[in-house]
Design a protein around this nucleic acid. Structure first.
Lengths: 174, 174
DNA sequence: GAGAACATGTAAAGCGTTACATGATTAA
DNA sequence: TTAATCATGTAACGCTTTACATGTTCTC
């Protein structure tokens, strides 16, 4: 259950409404932990009921801003430092590669090269994003500091995938 | 819905029972597409009902071996070549890095170094696995050909993650 | 005879996606 | 005044995990 920790963590930076949090999920967090409105609003309600966050302000149109409570921050820190993350690498692309024996070699090679093309496009989009993000606008926030580290992972991942797809394509005989 | 395609693809290599398929999921496919008994048996039933696989043999203890039908193979090929895979990178580790501002820098650095340690351990396990797999036992099967490409992705991914975790740790000031 | 491995499932609960539903406020 | 944006949710469905449940066959 990581969504709740993501929410507490974001609220720690600054109080926000469900609507605000959705913007963040769509923009910066989408590649790392996608979430939908339904999920966010439901989880906020649960977190408030559990006393891990609390309403700090109300605005127009029923807007409610939340901030983490002390209990919420304690739970976040506990999860960050003491709970070992478990990665379930579920990759549709790798699954397909695994099953590529079902099509002929020309098509398999085409698949690997299509992976390469998509990765190059992703890489271009990431570079554009990196250039466009106004980290200074955030000042010296923690999100800026650690956000850069996360984005660097994405960049390295894509570089690696591009090289791998070329290697893989070359490995399939004509 | 990739599980059904995974199952058809595995059955294409050789007919198998749900029990056999679970062995495969636990051994070779776990890192790419984890699945549980409940899921596998349920999906086999659905696939059989949809006419994409069929029982080819029955054995002791109610054992039923399945093989894909022509319709199943067509569906698999269609999915492999014509449906663009969509990746939802959901990484608990990266989410934590993103939120690392909630703990002090020493702990954040410790976290990055713990990622490094875990990655090194994973890498050692992968190398051991690579050495232990008897690809020749499978002969020149497609799983051997493409399985190697998938494993190489894993290896490169781990190498990348190790380097990145060192880079990230160094980037956090004392 | 006992224990391991083989073999198949059901049930419940939680997580995630998509579609539906409603209304208020602001800016052009 | 009208369109965009702000703002919150509910409902239904499917996928995934965990726990429960049962019985057979083989090997030592």
């Amino acid at each position: 259950m990581s969504l709740r920790h993501a929410l507490i963590g974001l609220l720690r930076e600054r109080p926000a409404s469900g609507y605000d949090l959705m913007q963040i999920f769509e923009k910066s967090l989408h590649q790392v932990w996608p979430a939908t409105k339904s999920q966010v609003y439901a989880e906020l309600a649960k977190l408030a009921e559990a006393g891990l966050i609390a309403v700090t302000a109300e605005g127009p149109r029923g807007r409610r801003e939340y901030a983490p409570t002390e209990a919420g921050l304690a739970e976040l820190r506990h999860w960050l430092v003491e709970v070992t993350p478990e990665e379930h690498q579920r990759s549709e692309t790798l699954l397909r590669v695994f099953l590529l024996g079902a099509v002929d070699r020309a098509q398999a090679k085409e698949f690997m090269l299509a992976v390469r093309e998509r990765t190059l496009a992703d890489l271009a989009r990431l570079d554009a994003l990196t250039a466009s993000i106004d980290w200074d606008g955030h000042g010296d926030t923690d999100l800026a500091r650690y956000g850069v580290i996360v984005m660097e992972w994405g960049r390295r991942m894509m570089e690696m995938t591009r090289e791998w797809s070329e290697w893989g394509a070359a490995r399939i005989p004509d």
